[in-house]
Write a protein that binds this DNA or RNA. Structure first.
Length: 478
DNA sequence: CCTGCCGGGTA
DNA sequence: TACCCGGCAGG
């Protein structure tokens, strides 16, 4: 359904919508960025601007038309996009990756974006317009996405289209959802192959990123999955879950590398890991009401071309439009299961802290003293910070009180006093292993004579205030 | 019982 | 916060 509507409109737009839709949350930003950059030249040209973009652009341009090697247009797209690494792209991709960031890897997958791009591109005119128009607009749309600063490199272009239209996007989204429902497991489009190429780079990424990401979502994975190797995780996006789900569907495979990248950012964490495991890439026709799933991109493209686009299968050129109409779906059993589970729990963080906590507490006192929570981060950093903070707070609170008391009592006594104080006591208790705590608090009576004894009742005026108040003598302290 | 002072209460 | 005081506990 969506697809059709999309089709009706300029392919590009549609695609974008779709792609965007899925991605937006995560990816959209990247795209926008990309677009902006690429925009300059028009999609294609623009694309070139960035490494990533270039890839896509190249792809689009070359692959689609020029390169469109014998193999198959579809292929080109896919290969290029999906593989990301793929021949043409490889170069581009690699570069981009290097430059920009790991995210790029996703780019590998980026296929999706790429695909979209292609389509868009195809309608060169439109695209150009798009690019131009988008730039500005994108910013708007992008914002959310953009929030995450993507390295320029990521920016890869394409997705921008988003701006094209909410309606389209919605449609796409719907389509995606549909597809998702159909194939829950399917995550993404990217293909296994991709992973291979980039892996080196990706790995580095992952390693770096790995630390950051926490869980995996099945959905995201799919996209990234193509890049599996890619470490999407870098970013910490929170809200991803929902988005993820949408994205997951398949659609966006097309989005291509760029998308993938963005996705990674967005979803980051989860995706990369899971995919690695066992991903099978399937190509699903996104055409409305068409659930066709093929194992090869060429096949799906052909299907789209012939069945939906009414073109000759062999056809001339695969503009890449086909790409828009199908998505790569990675089916990852593990990812699905795990991803979901992992996401929900986010256990890592949570889990981590608890153990740490105790130690922290021990430290806390010090911290409190300082007044800031600074150290907390270290241990608790992830999960517990809040806790620490609280603790500190308490301490701080107590601190004064305690000290106060102390002043009065001075040496001997008072620990008890502190104990008396409610909140303060707790912390102290934790912190200070005071012997006294238990008993009453009273400090042992000092040897020294106090005001009372010294001056006698007659000269009560001479007593220190504390004595007068029946408090611990401040004048004659032990 | 005296002394010291804690814990509370009042202004 | 400044004062007061009841009452407990050590000596």
């Amino acid at each position: 359904m969506d697809s059709r509507s999309v089709l009706d409109k300029p392919v590009v737009g549609t695609r974008l919508g779709a792609a965007d839709f899925g991605y937006r949350p995560t990816r959209s930003v990247p795209r926008d960025n990309r677009l902006e950059k690429s925009a300059g030249g028009g999609l294609r040209a623009g694309a070139t601007t960035n490494g990533t973009v270039l890839l896509k652009c190249v792809r689009d341009g070359q692959a689609t038309k020029d390169n469109a090697p014998a193999e198959a247009n579809g292929r080109r797209l896919h290969d290029g996009e999906k593989t990301g690494l793929g021949e043409h792209r490889d170069t581009g991709c690699t570069t981009s990756l290097k430059r920009s960031s790991p995210t790029h890897c996703p780019g590998t997958n980026g296929q999706t974006p790429g695909s979209f791009m292609h389509l868009d591109i195809r309608t060169q005119e439109r695209q150009v317009e798009m690019a131009v128009s988008f730039r500005p607009a994108p910013g708007q749309n992008v914002p959310q996405m953009e929030r995450q600063p993507l390295p320029s490199s990521h920016i890869p272009v394409p997705r921008n289209r988003k701006p094209s239209g909410h309606a389209d996007k919605e449609v796409m989204a719907a389509a995606v959802l549909t597809s998702l429902s159909t194939s829950p497991l399917v995550i993404c489009p990217s293909f296994a192959p991709t992973a291979a190429v980039p892996e080196p780079a990706i790995r580095a990424w992952k390693e770096a990123l790995s630390a950051s990401y926490s869980s995996s979502t099945s959905g995201n994975w799919s996209w990234d999955a193509s890049d599996q190797s890619v470490p999407s995780t870098p970013s910490p996006p929170l809200s991803n879950d929902a988005n993820k789900n949408f994205l997951l569907p398949s659609q966006r495979d097309d989005v291509s590398e760029d998308v993938a990248e963005s996705t990674h950012f967005m979803f980051e964490d989860p995706i990369p890991r899971k995919r690695k495991n066992s991903m099978k890439v399937m190509f699903k026709c996104l055409w409305k009401n068409c659930e066709k799933v093929l194992s090869t991109s060429s096949g799906i493209q052909r299907h789209i071309r012939t069945v939906h686009l009414g073109r000759n299968s062999d056809s001339d050129y695969s503009d890449g439009e086909e790409d828009f109409y199908y998505s790569e779906i990675e089916v990852n059993m593990d990812s699905l299961t795990e991803g979901l589970s992992s996401l929900t729990p986010t256990s890592p963080t949570t889990a981590g802290p608890p153990p740490i906590f105790p130690p922290l507490l021990a430290d806390v006192p010090d911290i409190n003293m300082n007044g800031t929570c600074s150290h907390a981060p270290t241990l608790l950093s992830q999960s517990a910070p809040s806790t620490l903070c609280h603790i500190r707070t308490d301490h701080a609170y107590q601190g004064p009180a305690v000290t106060h008391v102390r002043t009065v009592s001075i040496g001997e006594k008072r620990q008890p006093a502190s104990s008396t104080n409610g909140t303060g006591n707790k912390n102290q208790a934790l912190i200070m292993p005071t012997p006294k705590s238990a008993a009453g608090n009273r400090k042992p009576r000092g040897e020294a004579k106090k005001c009372r004894k010294v001056y006698g009742m007659e000269k009560k005026e001479m007593w220190c205030t504390a004595c007068r108040w029946k408090k611990a003598c401040q004048r004659f302290t032990d």
